[in-house]
Design a protein around this nucleic acid. Structure first.
Lengths: 110, 110
DNA sequence: CTATTTTGCAACCAAAAGGTTTCATTTTAT
DNA sequence: ATAAAATGAAACCTTTTGGTTGCAAAATAG
């Protein structure tokens, strides 16, 4: 199934899962233990995360360790960064405006 | 209604709308003209975008111009960037590995 | 004034999302 | 061998999402 990273990170539970396993692998039950929803629900979220490549699963005996592979987030980063100039432009325009209003306080804080 | 920027950009049509109006305001019909779906469908997407602050609408006569306000994307940027160290770490580890394999070619491309 | 343009919104619909309970399977512990 | 643990997946349910058509209202053009 074609899974989209944008859609994957749209769900807050999935973002929490990512936060949880970003720096260490955890098995499915351990991840599920951190949420109020059922293990199956967490499992489904995990499946979506693996389908879009943000997580890989390593089997070890009867456990399956979920490991974050966050490289794919560059796709999000690239998309957002292309627009940074627009919001910076708006910020610059505001700054210019404020400078014209109070030219002597252009770096002031109060 | 509480709208989430992450959820707002999850839909590809909404990302296209953002691309379309990032550098110039367009009225609703003009935006809708760029898509295969109905004007109403585009209007609904636009509503979601305004509800989460990515777009503001300026009324001008009977037209309503939709203007991108992409500052809110910093929320996405911040979220992604906190994880950059993890994917960089993995990349560094790969690089280290390759360096050990072929120490003389550590910068080589062919 | 009347017709047209631009828009918002209600009503409705199908599919997807997110959740649950239940059951089967595999691995490990006793 | 049996029991327990960890997991995958099916079946089902409700809400949300993304879409449609149709209509009403406001502004503008003729």
């Amino acid at each position: 199934m074609r899974r989209d990273v944008f859609q994957a990170i749209a769900d807050p539970t999935r973002r929490e899962i990512i936060a949880l396993i970003a720096d260490r692998s955890l098995n499915v039950n351990a991840v599920a233990g951190n949420f109020d929803v059922s293990r199956t629900a967490v499992y489904k979220h995990m499946k979506i995360l693996t389908e879009c490549g943000l997580v890989v699963v390593r089997q070890q005996g009867r456990e399956r360790f979920c490991e974050a592979r966050l490289e794919r987030l560059h796709e999000i980063s690239d998309w957002v960064e292309q627009y940074r100039k627009f919001w910076n432009a708006r910020f610059d325009a505001l700054e210019d405006y404020l400078n014209k209003m109070e030219p002597k306080k252009k770096k002031g804080r109060g």
